[in-house]
Amino acid sequence: MKSETADAVLEARHLRHSYGARRVLDDLSLRVGAGEIYALLGGNGAGKSTTLNIFLGFVRPGSGSASVCGIDPSTAPDEARAALAYVPESVALYDHLSAYENIDYFLHLAGANRHRTSVIDPALDDVGLVASARGQRVGGFSKGMRQKVAIALALARNVPVLLLDEPTSGLDPRATAEFNDLLEAARKRGIATLMATHDLLSAAAVADRIGFLREGHLDEEVAANGGARFDVDALFRRYSERRESRTA
């Protein structure tokens, strides 16, 4: 399998984490290679965001370790963050700035001092934000458009890792389809994408592999089988079984 041969860009090894007495992650391990899209699928409270937080260096795991391009975010958060781009669940930007200005500012914050202009437009082209919208203030943007801006920022930063938290929640079917196309753009650039989601359909549509997360533990990983992608019905059956067993 591809992921086992390629060098993992993103890797979690035996992560455990608790908030007080509540165990949130229990021996979670996963690897995401370059150009791969990995969907971390799980219900509310399964521990998806916590996993992302560990990669981001926001949370220090109780035990186990994470690495982003070989860097441990808990000891070198800035270096790890320099290698990744993160798109939060609800993308909020500076409403009084235009799409272009927002990206310019965030890029600047991320340490890009020169040549910002030469990367922003291609990135906006890649995410398909129409030219007329680029100069408009983002105050009136829909969630889908904001997400495009955030992903354009990620592409413009030209980093090897993309972390997405619930990217399709709140998107209508058409915006979801557009989003799926966006991930293809990331894949083409060889970016390792980790996407936390509870949306089975979206995961099935874009992911190379899907990890089923249940109560902090990775129950099972399923890989896409070539061009046929996933058998959605089978996945759905598994997903709901798991949910039932959990509620039982």
Binding site: L56, F58, D78, E79, R81, A82, L84, A85, Y86, V87, P88, S90, V91, A92, L93, Y94, D95, F106, L109, A110, G111, A150, L163
Partner: peptide
């Protein structure tokens, strides 16, 4: 409150922000 904090902090240069 505006929801930008996580995005801001996920950037490598956030320390001096």
């Amino acid at each position: 409150e505006a929801g930008r904090l996580r995005l801001l902090l996920s950037l490598p240069g956030a320390r001096g922000l």
